[in-house]
Design a protein around this nucleic acid. Structure first.
Lengths: 143, 143
DNA sequence: CACTTATTGATAATGATTTTCATTACCGAA
DNA sequence: TTCGGTAATGAAAATCATTATCAATAAGTG
């Protein structure tokens, strides 16, 4: 469904729709957690055997360029990707299972304004990520 | 001055104080922008010729472990480090010159509480970075 | 269906980080 | 101050992730 939208986006931007891209797109679009290129490769090969890792890198590049996916930054590393939410959204990551939730939260306006005044900077962008435990991991956590 | 504090921290945690570490510590402690391992290497070699790149990596590892430095995340890459501010601080990066400013900003309390309620997550940490232009780059920017 | 050309996968090349190991030099104890 | 155990070092090699090369393939327009 949304995978079709992604493919349409690719097509409209002059890229061809191939079996390899189909597999990668479906894999990422269905995932609720951030995936590294190798994980995308492993998972997508179940849909398209002949897939090469290099093609995964190239497809990720294009999807990122079209803002269909976004990079996820974590203490352990920053080479994982997840479907980009629509509009301006931030990420909330479960530290235990890696589940990702999106949220909107632009109460940052007032914060950035006050920081701008204090520091003299002109503030253009912000990155906000929250970390915690998701509902499932909370309830299964009973020690 | 603060470099001495870092060295003391290293010592108190069972690490030895060496010429190599002195050079790395002084380099980072004096820098107002994020430095990659290679840059740290280049700059530190002016203080300590015999320094090896491997030692830079090992020293960064220990400084990070002791929370004396922190990793800086950027679109281009996340392998740069900067002195960690005291207490809970966030980063404000100049997109043009790389200058880093710190700020405190825990008006996030209310935001995180509302997100927690909405998502069911228990929120533990947050990670916020701002990007923009510093005072200098703003004034030199006259096209 | 045919043709142009983007895309592909395998391989090789690169770049960053880690491991290995013999040598060096901290630094606490004598 | 010297001594000695041992952490720390640098050079070289190994590993891992990412990028470039290139001939073969296949998407999609006409």
């Amino acid at each position: 469904m949304s995978a079709e939208f992604w493919l349409t986006q690719l097509h409209e931007n002059g890229y061809r729709i191939t079996g390899a891209r189909r597999a990668v797109v479906e894999t990422i679009e269905k995932s609720t957690r951030a995936l590294t290129p190798v994980k995308v490769y492993d998972m997508s090969r179940k849909r398209y055997r002949a897939l090469g890792l290099v093609t995964v890198y190239r497809t990720l590049e294009k999807l990122e360029e079209l803002h269909l996916i976004q990079r996820v930054h974590q203490p352990m590393g920053c080479q994982a990707f997840i479907s980009a939410g629509h509009g301006h959204q931030h990420l909330l990551l479960c530290k235990k299972c890696g589940q990702v939730a999106f949220f909107e939260g632009d109460d940052l306006e007032s914060l950035t304004k006050s920081i701008a005044k204090k520091t003299g900077y002109q503030i253009q962008d912000h990155w906000l990520q929250l970390f915690g435990l998701c509902k499932n991991c909370l309830s299964n956590q009973q020690a």
